[in-house]
Simulated scan of single mutants.
Amino acid sequence: MATIQIKHVPDEVHDKLKRRAATTGQSLQQYMLDAVCREAEMAAVEELLAVKRVEALAYGEFDLDPDMIVEIIRVDRESH
């Protein structure tokens, strides 16, 4: 697995994230890993929507299949 390191995080941001992690019963490492994974999933949905928008412009329509709509809603709910 790869490693990501973030430098120069302001102390107040670090403290807030550490408190949030503790509130969820996670280490800061696990809390941030979960946040990064959620962000990566959201980016995938946004990329998918961008492709669909390009297709809609090309073909003059915008049609999302039901499975895609369910996935978009699921990812959005999990991101909050």
Score class of each variant (00 low, 15 high):
22 A>T: 02
22 A>P: 02
23 T>A: 06
24 T>W: 01
24 T>S: 02
25 G>L: 01
25 G>N: 02
25 G>F: 02
26 Q>A: 00
27 S>W: 00
27 S>G: 03
29 Q>M: 05
29 Q>K: 09
29 Q>V: 07
29 Q>D: 09
30 Q>R: 04
30 Q>W: 00
31 Y>L: 01
31 Y>M: 00
31 Y>I: 01
31 Y>N: 01
31 Y>A: 00
32 M>E: 05
32 M>D: 05
33 L>C: 10
33 L>R: 11
33 L>V: 10
33 L>S: 11
34 D>L: 04
35 A>P: 04
35 A>I: 02
36 V>S: 04
37 C>R: 10
37 C>W: 12
37 C>L: 11
38 R>S: 05
38 R>I: 06
38 R>Y: 01
38 R>C: 02
39 E>H: 12
40 A>I: 04
40 A>V: 06
40 A>W: 05
41 E>A: 14
41 E>T: 14
41 E>V: 15
42 M>H: 04
42 M>A: 03
43 A>G: 09
43 A>Y: 05
43 A>P: 01
44 A>P: 00
44 A>V: 04
44 A>I: 03
44 A>M: 06
44 A>N: 05
45 V>N: 12
45 V>I: 15
45 V>T: 13
45 V>C: 13
45 V>E: 14
45 V>F: 14
45 V>A: 14
46 E>C: 15
47 E>Y: 14
47 E>I: 13
48 L>R: 12
48 L>H: 13
49 L>F: 12
49 L>P: 09
49 L>E: 07
50 A>Y: 14
51 V>H: 12
51 V>G: 11
51 V>T: 13
52 K>P: 09
52 K>L: 13
53 R>A: 12
53 R>M: 12
54 V>D: 13
54 V>H: 14
54 V>N: 11
54 V>C: 10
54 V>E: 14
54 V>A: 15
55 E>I: 07
56 A>E: 12
56 A>D: 07
56 A>P: 07
56 A>T: 06
58 A>N: 06
58 A>F: 06
58 A>V: 05
58 A>R: 10
58 A>G: 03
58 A>E: 11
60 G>C: 10
60 G>V: 13
60 G>K: 06
62 F>M: 15
62 F>E: 11
62 F>I: 10
63 D>W: 11
63 D>V: 15
63 D>M: 14
64 L>A: 09
64 L>F: 06
64 L>I: 10
